[in-house]
């Protein structure tokens, strides 16, 4: 491959990463409570600040991408067994390559999801909940962060509680590009995500009403290659596993959470940048 072709390849890889990172950015994280639906008429406003970066070096050219995501989720307990959620992310990204950089800020696509309580048992010694979800991502974002793709997301969440211990697991699959023409004709590949979490609560505060819980999560993700005109693109598609320690503080009306996602295994196709550590700061307010 000539030097020009390899340079073109690097640039293509970086540009593809820029388009696809927002789509595949949310590789799980703070997934507990997922299998347990909130009470009837309960409003939950959840915000997160996610800092993530990708970096790499090839042919002496240093490359880095930094992204701040601020997803805002509003959830409502429509029925005891049905929760409706709407998510709107705000995204700010910066790309650096060969001494030059560019930044971009804007809102992302709108995501609407429903969670159904398929099974729940409450006993004196444990609680078990299983809840499937179905959602759709609508390409409502401005041109810089619009995927131009309608995506369907389906998942299954399972939560187990026993005493002060809590564990959660989920599997989710996202069919990207069920409609739409993609950015520049590029359709992102489907995504698979699996998460497991274990937490142990300690009661704190006045009268022991609040709790603080160390958390440990494993987050796996697998994104298939993007395609153009029905052909897979070489510098797209990846998989990886994160080991993520965190902390959660809970009161009767608020949750504060912190998670640090450390990649312990990852594999990218082509010349894509590797994921670095991701930091997630979150809050939930319950009304």
């Amino acid at each position: 491959m000539s030097r020009i072709n390899r340079t073109t390849s690097l640039i293509c890889g970086l540009l593809l990463s820029a388009f696809l990172l927002p789509i595949a950015a949310e590789a799980g994280g703070i997934s507990f409570d997922a299998g347990l639906t909130p009470p009837l008429d309960r409003w939950i406003v959840r915000t997160q600040a996610r800092y993530m970066s990708r970096s790499g070096e090839s042919m002496g050219m240093s490359r880095k991408m930094t992204m701040y995501m601020f997803p805002v989720v509003v959830a409502y307990g429509l029925r005891p067994d049905l929760t409706i959620m709407v998510k709107q992310p705000l995204i700010s990204s910066k790309m650096e390559m060969g001494g030059t950089s560019s930044t971009d800020t804007g809102s992302g696509d709108l995501f609407i999801m429903a969670k159904y309580r398929a099974y729940r048992i409450n006993t004196a010694s444990y609680t078990l909940g299983i809840a499937p979800t179905l959602g759709i991502e609508i390409p409502t974002g401005p041109p810089s962060h619009n995927s131009r793709s309608w995506d369907i997301n389906s998942g299954l969440f399972c939560s187990w509680r026993s005493g002060l211990w809590a564990s959660d697991a989920n599997i989710a699959y996202k069919w990207n590009g069920v409609a739409g023409d993609g950015v520049g004709g590029v359709m992102p590949g489907d995504e698979l995500a699996m998460n497991i979490a274990l937490a142990r609560q300690f009661s704190v505060g006045r009268r022991g009403r609040n709790s603080i819980a160390p958390v440990l999560e494993l987050n796996y993700f697998d994104s298939q290659a993007a395609s153009h005109d029905g052909h897979d693109l070489p510098h797209s598609g990846e998989s990886g596993l994160n080991l993520s320690p965190g902390l959660k503080f809970t009161t009767s009306s608020m949750v504060l959470e912190l998670l640090v996602q450390n990649p312990i295994s990852q594999s990218q196709n082509g010349t894509q940048l590797e994921r670095d550590t991701t930091v997630i700061l979150g809050s939930r307010f319950l009304f």
Binding site: P39, N122, T123, T127, A166, N210, T251, S253, R284
Partner: peptide, 16 residues
Amino acid sequence: VFGMDCPACAGGLSKL
């Protein structure tokens, strides 16, 4: 009452 697993769960029940 069984199934309350954290302070936030308890808050939701009190509201109802």
